[in-house]
Design a protein around this nucleic acid. Structure first.
Length: 155
DNA sequence: GCCAACGTTGGC
DNA sequence: GCCAACGTTGGC
């Protein structure tokens, strides 16, 4: 399957992910059941990921990535010092699961405005009114179109 | 900073 | 189970 995953570049940009060991980062901090369920129940190693920057000056797709692990518990839920700490979860029965994401390359941004301007992408979950989900599925058609449009970022 | 939209919580 | 209140997301 194919996915779009939002990250705030202040927290983890595509370049941060590319600099990480094995270009791989654990996708911690998701605290929404629907987004968690996508990671826990549907993602497969090797699935394609559009790496999206949100809550920033120019929101949009900034890189290509792939799912790099099966699901496992998000360690931050157990850490009282973490902003993602969840007092309602237990190690025996963890509430929050995540996957690792491997960054492949950065692209020239495909901005949110550009996505909205393209009628062929009007059905993207990302673009639906009021949609706030940080992880959304992408259809094969949307994926093919966007992959053609993404240009690796030079130097 | 504003605000629309959504998800969660908790009283009843 | 309903729903008001609250907190969060995220574009603008």
């Amino acid at each position: 399957m194919y996915w779009l995953m939002k990250s705030e570049p202040d927290e983890c940009s595509i370049d941060d992910a590319l600099r990480a060991p094995a270009q791989t980062v654990p996708w911690f901090g998701v605290r929404n059941y629907q987004a968690r369920n996508f990671m826990r129940d549907q993602m497969q190693v090797g699935d394609g990921v559009l790496f999206y920057h949100s809550s920033c000056e120019v929101p949009g797709i900034y890189g290509l990535a792939e799912v790099a692990s099966t699901p496992y518990p998000d360690a931050t839920q157990f850490d009282p010092a973490s902003p993602y700490f969840d007092p309602g979860t237990t190690r025996q029965n963890p509430r929050w699961q995540l996957v690792d994401v491997r960054a492949l390359w950065a692209c020239e941004p495909v901005t949110l405005a550009q996505l909205r301007a393209d009628p062929a992408l009007a059905d993207m979950t990302l673009l639906q009114k009021g949609s706030r989900l940080s992880i959304t599925p992408v259809t094969p058609g949307q994926w093919a179109l966007l992959r053609k449009r993404m240009k690796p970022r030079s130097g």
